[in-house]
Design a protein around this nucleic acid. Structure first.
Lengths: 192, 192
DNA sequence: TTCCAGGCTTGCCAAATGGCAAGAATTCAT
DNA sequence: ATGAATTCTTGCCATTTGGCAAGCCTGGAA
């Protein structure tokens, strides 16, 4: 039943299979139907989710009211609005299911209890945060050093599935360009 | 002696003054002279530093060998290459003192011991990571939604002191533009 | 089936940013 | 103090990306 969750807890080698099973016991099953919001702007995130099936999109609005995609979530990843969840503050971001989703969730209180009670879970939790940070840093560096076309090619490599589930305009804002530019880049790119 | 460090541990309200003093006891004094490297590419970061005085620059090299500034550190901040420190992997980044620096440091082993032994320090450590993540996310959003001039104005607001310590070409790559463009942006900006 | 809305592409032109090279200004080591 | 190296600015032009509007295509609702 929870084998994917247990495997995920185990991969980092910070948690033994036995401990992983115990920890997994605290997670509860979650379903988020397509287009439903896992988190809405203005609310306090109270769900730490291991996504097992489906895809989600994270987005915010800029000062002009434009929808800006700040992230995508794919299966076997943690879905989390870090700032709102840990600081208990209102989220500035929305998280919406692009497809029907299933996963395993923890509330803030449940997570904190595990965090303090179980050394392995602390290490694991830190590892998840560190990985998210590192991923974002890599993305930041690519924004600085790469062209839009290179970033497009990179996304095509690391997360090809997202192109089947998110409209191109969302992918464009994630890449930091307009949908018009992405369309042209795709045209150029397909020639090669 | 360690009053700034203690104050820093205390500000988040996650650590009481008494506990802060105990925790501070484990930090050791560090000096980094101007231009010295706090961390060099290829080495494993083993220093978690609370910077009390001075300024530092974090940078990496892109595929063409260009120096890209990925961050700056100012007083009262934690200086840390997250990925290398926590994953015990070789750093891809360099951290160099822009001025003579002083601060308080912990090794990885010392940090981990405190992390597991002291609930308040765990909360505090998580808080530091969350804050770093949130700051980076905000910067990422500004890369997507703002013009170079707006990002320049933002940096001028949030960290004016850095302009006294880092050459403009470093600030330019941090903002994601060339030094030529930054020079022009400054010219336009000063007219207003 | 028909119609509508959203998504995607394209043409035209404007704006933002980059590349290169020269020169001025500043800093640094000797 | 002198010369060398670095930093910063500027002119010229190329490239990248954006803004807008039109048109096409497609999928879902009635």
């Amino acid at each position: 039943m929870k084998e994917n969750l247990i495997a995920f807890l185990t991969t980092s080698s910070l948690v033994t299979p036995e401990k992983a099973a115990e920890i997994a016991g605290h997670f509860t099953f979650q379903e988020i139907p397509k287009n439903a919001f896992f988190l809405e702007e203005g609310k306090i995130a109270n769900n730490y989710l291991f996504l097992e099936k489906g895809f989600m999109r994270v987005f915010a609005y800029d000062m002009d009211g434009n929808d800006v995609t700040t992230g995508f979530a794919a299966p076997q990843q943690v879905v989390l609005e870090v700032s709102s969840f840990f600081n208990r503050t209102r989220s500035q971001e929305n998280i919406q299911a692009l497809t029907d989703c299933e996963g395993w969730g923890l509330t803030y209180d449940e997570l904190n209890q595990l965090f303090h009670a179980r050394p392995e879970f602390r290490e694991f939790g830190r590892h998840v945060l560190v990985k998210a940070f590192t991923t974002l840093k890599t993305r930041m560096l690519s924004m600085i050093t790469e062209t839009a076309e290179q970033r497009y090619a990179g996304l095509l490599n690391t997360n090809p599935a997202i192109f089947q589930h998110a409209p191109l305009k969302n992918i464009a804002s994630y890449l930091g360009i307009t949908d018009t530019s992405l369309s042209r880049i795709r045209k150029e790119f397909s020639k090669k």
